[in-house]
Design a protein around this nucleic acid. Sequence first.
RNA 1: GCGAUCGUAGCCAAGUGGUUAAGGCAGAGGAUUGUGGUUCCUCCAUUCGUGGGUUCGAUCCCCAUCGGUCGCCCCA
Length: 430
Amino acid sequence: MLQAPPGTRDLFEPEIHLWQSIEQTVRRVMALAAFSEIRTPIFEPTDLFARGIGEATDIVGKEMYTFTDRGDRSLTLRPEGTAGVSRAVIERKLLGGGGILRLWYMGPMFRYERAQKGRQRQFHQIGLEVLGCATARADAEAIALAQQILQELGIAHRTVRLNSVGTPEDRHVYRAALVDFFTPHQDKLDPDSRDRLTRNPLRILDSKDPQTQAIAADAPKLLDFLGTESRAHFDQVRSHLSDLGVDYVLDPTLVRGLDYYTRTAFEIQSSDLGAQSAVCGGGRYDRLLEQLGGAPTPAVGWAMGMERLVLLLEAQRGAIASGVEVYVVSRGGGAEAQSLVVAQNLRQQGIATELDLSGAKFDKQLKRASQSGATLALILGEAEVAQGVVQLKHLRDGTQVVVPWAEVVSHVQETLPAGWAIAKSGTLPT
RNA sequence: GCGAUCGUAGCCAAGUGGUUAAGGCAGAGGAUUGUGGUUCCUCCAUUCGUGGGUUCGAUCCCCAUCGGUCGCCCCA
């Protein structure tokens, strides 16, 4: 039996409606804030991620879908969006000699991991990046927009966790202090944390092991190691967030997993998610573009997990109307031929029309008509064809009228309840 | 990569070491020939994820394998 690869899934009704409405909200909020969409390739040179995300990270170390193409290039399915966007900005000189660029994106990402609740191998992210701006206002705006999207989607129980991870220089000093602190206790650390002592000491701080946590409580705090500029920047971000009415909690243990973050790091979590509680994560990455060969460019951004949004919204998802206004029923050669023409005429006038192709008996087709949620059933049999008319049946009250072909469209337009033209706007009712 | 747990039709879901694997939904056909969410009848898994093994005999026991789910690691 052929099946989809592990950690991937097919999306279709009714869940797909939820995706569409999320996408719609995102587009709207991004447009309101003057962000423009960017679509970058699904795969990029492996080196882009290795250099951008960091050789030592789990993503690069064990989670990338890497392959060699027929031209002997090493390519990788993108595990996240920021590296590709940064590459595009550099390569296309989107920032020119300066200025500020606001971009957003949405699309699939790939990481080779064991699937669990809220985590897939192919997953989808919505992301936002502000490039060319070092001020704390950019950080605050980015975080506020994430909150606005979540708010408008109706996601409750959100917590913003905020931290500053300083500059690489700050962290270098802090890292040494941490190693000094933990080394005498290393026998008492859990195995994972002992391993992290050499690989990534900062990670020990958010270990879930109780004994490790007890030890870590007295560890030096990263915030105490921030340089004066990082400190000032952090204070400004906090001040702006207060001005914006964005609630947050300081979390000194919040360390993002990607090497490129500097200063601001934040995460928005929901208590309704299970083990993978973060629905949005991001921060500032002032060194990334330079590291990728571009001009030094301060930047800040975030990414949201689509699957996690969907998970949060699924509980509150109601029944979704099909959007069909007219259901066309026909039986017999001439009638079936004419039904095709009638359906086309209706659609060309923006009336959502479903054509029953089964050729089954009228009672079967009418049953489906009422199940479809359509307002009207348009009935065409040999008798109607002989007279050049159709029967238009109002499925709510059961009334039925005979309408000549030439008047079908106008009659339907008059009969449909106000709001039918929603089909013309290209949006489905949600 | 590690751990736990599960895998019966499109979906939900009973079931037992032994002739024909409940039921429900959906679907198809029909109940005097063309009219709907009701009712009634009929049909719809040579087969219980896959491959081995134990057994006279396995869907039910064992092993492997492939998937799902939840968790660890890590992350959106």
